[in-house]
Simulated scan of single mutants.
Amino acid sequence: MPARFEAVAEALAAGTDFVDRCAVVGQHLAHDGASVEEALAGLRETWRVVTGVDPTFDAVSALLGGWSEATLGYLNHLSCTDPLTGLASQSHLRSCLADKYRAPHTDVSGEWALVMCQIPEGDHPSGDRLERSLEIAGVGEHVRTVFAQDEVVARLGVNRVAALTRRDTNLGRRVRLLRLLLNDGRSDSRYDADVVELVPDLTNRVRVWIEGLPHADGAVGPLFDELSR
């Protein structure tokens, strides 16, 4: 049995769902450095050993989806740009923040903030990755219109865009303008102040809020983990 495919073989033999297991195997193989040809060859060998026939379309699709997802995540980590939206990558945003924390005599939490935008999760119940990325790219264009100076505008997770900007006297007005642009002129006073905890938005609009930054660089990683979920 090919390495990594044991769980898939067990599911086939037991007659249980194998799709999720194929996706997980695809991710593991990508992390192992296996090519897509090697992944498909392993899947075919497993199917033929257990069932005597070639794998189904669902199995191949799940395997390739998992492999592609893991590979794209690796490339995003290396790149300064998210390839699907043209926005800065999360790793680039993190690197820019790290530089600011290393700068002497800089109060990062007092001088800088993240302006966060989140598209409604219910817009794409099918989980269409391309369609969601196109919408994120559109949100990013609006963010760049309002934050058009030296701000870093990045994709953060699946549904969010973040802009690293100075915390000055114009920040509140710029956030209100961005909220109006993203929501067809409609605003919501609940988000006019700085908030750290995410407040549920029952209006199903693009949420916009100011996210405070921690005092120490070591706390940025957990913050990004939470914001990118």
Results as ranks from 00 to 15, higher is better:
E38Q: 15
D107R: 10
V36P: 01
W47H: 12
G140T: 03
E69I: 02
S61N: 14
A62R: 02
R94A: 15
I136K: 00
S68A: 13
G33Y: 03
M116Q: 04
A59T: 06
T56M: 07
L87G: 06
A154P: 04
R94T: 11
V152D: 03
L93R: 07
A163D: 00
T71K: 02
H77M: 09
A34H: 03
E135Q: 14
R48K: 11
I136N: 00
V60T: 08
T51G: 11
L84I: 09
G122M: 11
V158S: 13
A148H: 08
W47C: 12
R166S: 14
A163N: 00
R144A: 09
H92E: 15
D54W: 08
L134S: 12
S89Q: 05
V158L: 04
A41N: 07
L134W: 08
E151V: 04
S68Q: 11
D150P: 00
Q118S: 15
A103H: 10
D123R: 06
L43D: 01
G42C: 02
P125S: 09
R129M: 11
W67G: 11
L114V: 06
A62I: 00
A41M: 05
D123F: 06
R129N: 10
E131W: 09
T56A: 12
S68I: 04
A148C: 15
G73M: 05
T51V: 15
A163K: 02
V108A: 12
E141Y: 07
G65S: 14
G127F: 01
N76W: 04
D58E: 11
R132F: 06
Q90I: 07
Y74G: 06
T106S: 12
C117Q: 01
L72E: 03
E151I: 01
G65A: 13
G122Y: 09
G73L: 06
E69C: 08
S95C: 13
A59D: 07
R155L: 13
L72V: 12
W47P: 00
A70G: 08
V143Q: 01
N159D: 13
T106F: 05
E45D: 11
E141V: 14
V146A: 08
W67I: 09
T51M: 15
S61T: 14
E38A: 15
C80K: 10
P120R: 05
G66I: 01
A103Y: 11
D123N: 09
C80G: 15
G138C: 12
V152N: 05
V50A: 10
G52M: 10
D128T: 07
V50D: 05
G52H: 14
L93A: 12
V158H: 04
H124E: 06
I119T: 05
R44F: 00
G66T: 01
S91T: 15
D107S: 12
S61Y: 07
A70L: 03
G127V: 02
G86M: 01
L75S: 05
P125L: 05
E121M: 10
D99N: 02
D99Q: 04
